[in-house]
């Protein structure tokens, strides 16, 4: 019985040595490792809770992300590698979308998926960073901002359950769709 176990282990481990993988990596970073202009932008908003900074190394680009909570809402602010502002995303509920926009988005999703459920909705603001800062500090309206909605759904694609990230314009027009790669969880299933 010991021989069987050892043989199976050796066979599997020896066949692993040649595999190579590409990957995306996201990890927590200290504030000192973040570009100063990104820190200045976030500090000027005066969030009333702590900021967590993350560095994301993708296939083609590196970015920084600040995450925090404010008035019960989750905020995520993304910057380029050199600290230039890219966008801010705020998690919202479906009833916080304009009803006409939500109806158009729902119709689009229903037409493309037999069955789906919404996992997360974020409103995404991008464009001029001073306009966004003004809006976040309640000094101006969202007029002039580029407003999109990022919606994560779970549903079936080609007969398999998966998660998809959709981006819609503020009028509910489809912009893009990305399939989310789910981390493997066999080690907490078996």
């Amino acid at each position: 019985m010991r021989t069987i176990f050892i043989l199976i282990m050796l066979f599997t481990l020896s066949s692993q040595g040649f595999a190579q993988f590409k990957y995306e990596k996201e990890s927590r970073v200290k504030k000192s490792g973040v570009p100063a202009n990104a820190i200045n932008f976030v500090d000027s908003i005066n969030f009333n809770s702590g900021i967590k900074w993350y560095k994301e190394i993708g296939f083609n680009a590196i970015s920084f992300e600040a995450k925090t909570k404010c008035n019960g809402k989750k905020y995520s602010i993304e910057f380029s590698e050199n600290g230039s502002f890219e966008d801010i995303e705020i998690e919202i509920k479906s009833d916080e979308l304009p009803s006409e926009t939500f109806n158009i988005i729902s119709k689009y999703l229903s037409e493309n998926h037999n069955k789906y459920s919404i996992e997360k909705i974020q409103v995404q603001y991008s464009g001029n960073k001073n306009l966004i800062l003004g809006y976040l500090l309640n000094n101006s309206t969202s007029i002039g901002l580029v407003t999109n909605y990022e919606i994560v759904i779970s549903g079936k694609v080609a007969g398999s359950f998966t998660m998809l990230e959709y981006l819609f314009s503020k009028n509910g027009k489809f912009i893009q769709k990305t399939q989310i790669t789910l981390n493997r969880t066999e080690n907490i299933e078996y």
Binding site: F21, Y23, K25, E26, S27, R28, N183, N187, I188
Partner: peptide, 12 residues
């Protein structure tokens, strides 16, 4: 399963 280096569990 709790990642120790970020919000999601990545390779390495």
């Amino acid at each position: 399963e709790i990642p120790l280096q970020g919000k999601s569990l990545d390779p390495k």
